[in-house]
């Protein structure tokens, strides 16, 4: 089934892009000029304002992907598939951001680039799952079929995320919790808290913007593909 997609950028989307840019700029100003530099961590602590929002967004996107995957398996609607794929794609991007900024933080805070800290491990493994989702779509064979297989994986990802969380929490019990989780409580300074919430909103808005963009691209591509195969059916395409 072909769904109609708006081909022109709507005014609302343009507004969203501008607003996202403005909020991001504001968040950066708050991060670097308003929020005080932390005493122990120095400038590295500012990673926190974008690292944590990226990780939160990643988690939300995983959930979106799982729900969309379930719905796709039940309803077989290509829009649901596009939502799931877009969510997985962005989840991998924001997961990668969290995974790159995490070790930078860890080096300063704990003296090692990588610790098998539960949250970091969980992030790494869930990024693996959704990278597998994307690989499955790319190399899983025939298009419709690989989408269904990827959706099955996307759905399994949510309970797997829960079980991995329980397992690595139990496993990585050697890490002092107050150091790991202390960073959340460390935001006693109101300016820091302001910068954090600004960062959170900025990253959320960026996610929405990218989501709308990628979703639309996907649906447009779907339409072009359908058109091409229709034309091939009636032999209307020139060779090459």
């Amino acid at each position: 089934m072909v769904h109609s997609v708006k081909t022109k950028s709507s005014a609302a989307f343009l507004l969203l892009v501008v607003a996202t840019g403005a909020v991001f700029l504001g968040a950066l100003v708050l991060t670097f000029f308003v929020a005080p530099t932390e005493r122990m961590m120095g400038i590295v602590q500012k990673i926190f304002y974008f690292h944590v929002p990226s990780a939160i967004v990643m988690g939300v996107l995983f959930l979106v992907c799982a729900v969309a995957s379930l719905a796709y398996l039940l309803k077989n609607d290509s829009r649901l598939d596009a939502i799931g794929a877009t969510a997985a794609e962005l989840a991998v991007v924001f997961g990668a951001i969290a995974l790159i900024t995490g070790p930078l933080w860890a080096r300063k805070a704990w003296g090692a680039w990588w610790t098998w800290e539960p949250r970091l491990t969980l992030t790494l493994l869930s990024v693996f799952i959704y990278a597998g989702y994307l690989a499955m779509r790319a190399y899983g064979g025939e298009k419709e079929f690989s989408r269904r297989v990827a959706a099955g994986l996307g759905l399994m990802g949510a309970p797997a995320y829960y079980f991995i969380k329980v397992a690595v929490d139990k496993w990585g019990g050697n890490h002092p919790k107050n150091v790991v989780y202390g960073k959340g409580e460390g935001l006693m300074n109101p300016d820091m808290r302001l910068a954090f919430f600004a960062g959170l909103i900025a990253v959320l808005m960026l996610t929405v913007t990218l989501f709308v963009m990628r979703y639309r691209t996907r649906m447009l591509k779907e339409r072009v593909d359908t058109a091409i195969s229709e034309m091939q059916k009636y032999d209307l395409l020139e060779d090459g």
Partner: peptide, 12 residues
């Protein structure tokens, strides 16, 4: 592909 998708899920 099989190990790529199966291993992360069975980590627990």
């Amino acid at each position: 592909l099989v190990p790529l998708v199966v291993y992360p899920i069975i980590v627990p």
